[in-house]
Amino acid sequence: MADTRNNKAVTELTSVHYWLALKAIPRLASYKKIALVKKFGLKTLFTQQVDLNQTGLTGAQRSAISSPDWHGLTKVIFDSQLCQSKIIVYDDPAYPVLLKEIYDPPIVIFARGNIELLSLAKIAIVGSRNASVAGREIAHKLAGQLTAQFVVTSGLALGIDAQAHLGALHHGGYTIAVVATGLDMTYPARHKKLQKDIIENKGLLISEFAPGIAPKAGHFPKRNRLISGLSLGVLVVEASLKSGSLITARCALEQSREVFAVPSSIYNLQAKGCHWLIKQGAKLVEDIADIEEEFEDIVTDSLNLSRNKEKANSREKSVQQDLFNDPMLASVGYEVTPVDMVVSRSKLPIDVVLTRLTVLELKGLVSAVPGGYLKLNRG
């Protein structure tokens, strides 16, 4: 029988409530949260008295599962509606396919604006907040040119980010701003008009932070991983050696995304980070042809929603095929294969193995069974 915890009838709760409750479990990586859902079922995890003793969860984590703050989660949903945003949960068809590939994908994202952009090909443009005049002009120009084939993604920050958004808008293109606050506020405050312009021109604002959450230093690296995770590649226009833009670039490398960098004068301190990236193997960019040639299979003559939806579907099928050919899959047999055996065969760290097994299971290529995993016959 369902447990009506916190005196709130389970029948009043929605799937969004349960995903928000999963998100609210403290200090637990996303892949572990998803593993809990696979083991117990999303609704069952929060509405039945499941045995959590062997899960390795802390007392605070078990408490968050046994006694969710349903009232507070309902307020999050209500506040999202007030700021005209939509909550997109992990199993929602609108949830970006590429974002599920990253190590620690958000359990839910808050989106305001044109959510159809989530299914289109995206290129991120990032760089210094204290960019030079030349750097700003380059970001503006390249963003405008890239909108013919891609949605331009950036972080709504001062400097290069702002010029990336403006360049896309001024050329009639689409842009996504990934922010480090709730969608009911604007940071920095001077970008309130830019934020409004993005929405009014069929762009999109997204965040993993609920309404009411103010900016904190720790939010920006989390935002940066989403900027790169959403995108096929990241273009760094100007960045010092100690900048958030290099964090985004590192996230892109960890996520197997393409990294591009614009060179500059050796005397430009704001370009030192770009030069370092190029030395590390990032592709030097002089014009958008240097980027387009890396994505010839998805480049279109113009960014049309219906045509690019087809491209996005093709990309998803390509991702599925790539997963089917993933060497990790060869480590799982058609008989029950324990996780430790998968680790031994793949020679990968256990956290990486668990993450990739979760992705493979979401794509229907393996199944979690008692004792380990089982490869599914897709032939």
Rank of each mutant, 00 (worst) to 15 (best):
1 M>W: 08
6 N>P: 11
12 E>I: 06
13 L>P: 07
16 V>Q: 13
21 A>H: 12
24 A>M: 14
27 R>P: 06
29 A>N: 15
29 A>K: 15
29 A>L: 05
33 K>Q: 01
33 K>D: 04
34 I>S: 02
37 V>N: 03
38 K>C: 08
38 K>I: 09
40 F>A: 08
43 K>F: 11
50 V>Y: 01
50 V>S: 03
53 N>P: 03
57 L>Y: 06
59 G>N: 12
60 A>T: 14
61 Q>M: 04
63 S>H: 12
68 P>E: 01
71 H>T: 13
71 H>M: 13
72 G>D: 14
83 C>S: 12
83 C>W: 01
84 Q>M: 15
85 S>G: 09
88 I>L: 05
89 V>W: 12
91 D>I: 07
91 D>Y: 07
92 D>K: 13
93 P>Y: 00
97 V>C: 03
102 I>C: 09
109 I>L: 05
114 N>P: 03
117 L>S: 04
119 S>C: 10
119 S>N: 09
120 L>W: 06
122 K>E: 02
123 I>S: 05
123 I>V: 10
132 S>A: 13
134 A>P: 01
143 A>S: 12
145 Q>R: 09
145 Q>M: 15
146 L>V: 00
151 V>F: 02
152 V>M: 07
157 A>W: 08
161 D>M: 07
164 A>D: 09
165 H>V: 04
171 H>Y: 13
175 T>Y: 02
176 I>Y: 00
176 I>D: 03
179 V>S: 03
189 A>R: 14
189 A>W: 08
191 H>I: 02
192 K>M: 14
192 K>W: 10
192 K>A: 15
194 L>S: 07
194 L>C: 10
194 L>E: 11
197 D>L: 15
206 I>P: 06
208 E>F: 03
210 A>P: 01
212 G>M: 03
215 P>L: 00
221 P>I: 08
224 N>C: 01
235 L>C: 12
243 S>Y: 09
243 S>K: 09
249 A>Q: 01
249 A>M: 03
251 C>S: 13
253 L>C: 00
254 E>T: 12
254 E>G: 15
255 Q>D: 10
259 V>P: 01
259 V>R: 00
262 V>N: 04
274 C>N: 10
278 I>F: 03
281 G>C: 06
282 A>Y: 12
283 K>P: 01
292 E>H: 09
297 D>Q: 10
299 V>E: 04
302 S>C: 09
303 L>K: 00
304 N>A: 06
309 K>V: 14
312 A>P: 04
315 R>G: 11
316 E>R: 14
320 Q>Y: 15
323 L>W: 02
326 D>M: 10
327 P>Q: 01
327 P>L: 02
328 M>A: 07
338 P>W: 09
349 P>H: 11
351 D>I: 15
351 D>A: 14
353 V>A: 00
353 V>I: 02
356 R>I: 13
358 T>Y: 06
366 V>S: 08
367 S>W: 11
369 V>Q: 05
370 P>I: 02
374 L>T: 11
